[in-house]
């Protein structure tokens, strides 16, 4: 059986006069980490709240494995809200067990899972502490545990990496990858573009309530890659070719960046480079996610 995917079509919502979402549509595929990227107020949180059923959108459809998001389906989502959400004055383990039981996990199993997750997240010694006595980073780990406690079929995480130190970030990334590898569709939003670029299989770029790009991360970058090439010529670090239809953008220790126009032939560039010395590197450059983001929101 193939794992189901999350399908969003035509999601539209307005807060008063302000349109927050305008025909938002994308897919979160099973087994893949999908990064949800957009500026503040672009509509990421509103979309996620609509998916988990905390907000009733004005229009649009959300389906998981072809089924509408009934309560039964929603209860299989692991959700991490943007501003976090746990009881500050409840003990860590007790809190996880309570949430697990709310989500339909039997008592004994809930206890086992809570212990297991706390151990995996390095919080075993804090299990009987009140949540508010933990550092923010540790509270966030508990929040992750809360989203994973019922072994959800779908993960919706709003800014799971914000406020984490690099080590905690790696641990979190590992957890998400683990779930994705188990066949769970994972959608998470983030402002940290480098991290998203490193981590994500799929991307959804949203700008002013509209999806401006969505699909496999690699394909999106390929699609928007122009005809920019990077050449490294051994022994000639500042090599500057002077060929028709080519513009040198930069030349330095990291090689030479050249933009080719419609008429120019990359092979001519390669030949010229070989003539200048041994070629250590020759490739078409892909735009970074930051470039991509800057381009689509322009």
């Amino acid at each position: 059986m193939t794992s189901p995917s999350l399908q969003i079509t035509g999601l539209t919502h307005a807060f008063g006069d302000r349109t927050a979402l305008d025909q938002v549509g994308f897919e979160v595929r099973p087994g893949r980490l999908t990064g949800f990227v957009g500026a503040n107020g672009a509509g990421k949180t509103t979309t996620m709240r609509a998916i988990v059923g905390v907000l009733a959108p004005d229009a649009g459809e959300i389906a998981f494995g072809g089924r509408p998001m009934t309560l039964e389906v929603r209860r299989r989502i692991g959700y991490m809200p943007e501003e976090r959400g746990l009881y500050p004055k409840m003990k860590v383990a007790e809190q996880l067990v309570y949430l697990a039981r709310i989500l339909g996990v039997a008592k004994d199993q809930a206890q086992d899972r809570a212990d297991g997750l706390l151990e995996a997240l390095g919080l075993t010694d804090r299990r009987d502490d009140m949540l508010h006595t933990l550092s923010l980073g540790n509270q966030q780990r508990v929040q992750v545990a809360a989203a994973l406690i019922h072994e959800p079929d779908l993960l919706i995480l709003d800014e799971p990496f914000s406020g984490l130190d690099p080590i905690a970030m790696d641990a979190m990334a590992e957890r998400l990858r683990e779930r994705a590898d188990a066949g769970v569709p994972v959608l998470f939003s983030s402002h940290q573009l480098d991290l998203v670029e490193r981590l994500c299989d799929d991307l959804v770029l949203i700008h002013q309530g509209r999806v401006v790009a969505a699909g496999a991360a690699r394909a999106l970058r390929e699609e928007r890659a122009g005809r920019r090439y990077r050449v490294e010529v051994g022994g000639a670090p500042a090599w500057r070719p002077a060929l028709a239809g080519m513009t040198v953008i930069d030349a330095g220790a990291a090689g030479t960046l050249v933009d080719l126009d419609e008429t120019a032939d990359p092979q001519a560039l390669l030949a010229a480079a070989q003539a200048a010395g041994p070629v250590a590197h020759f490739s078409r450059t892909l735009p970074s996610l930051a470039d991509l983001f800057a381009e689509v929101v322009r």
Binding site: V52, G85, Y87, P88, L99, I102
Partner: peptide, 17 residues
């Protein structure tokens, strides 16, 4: 109001009517 201000209500409402 505690559930509201700690946002735990979002998690609860996602799973319980």
């Amino acid at each position: 109001v505690e559930e509201k201000s700690s946002r735990v209500v979002e998690i609860l409402v996602a799973a319980v009517p």
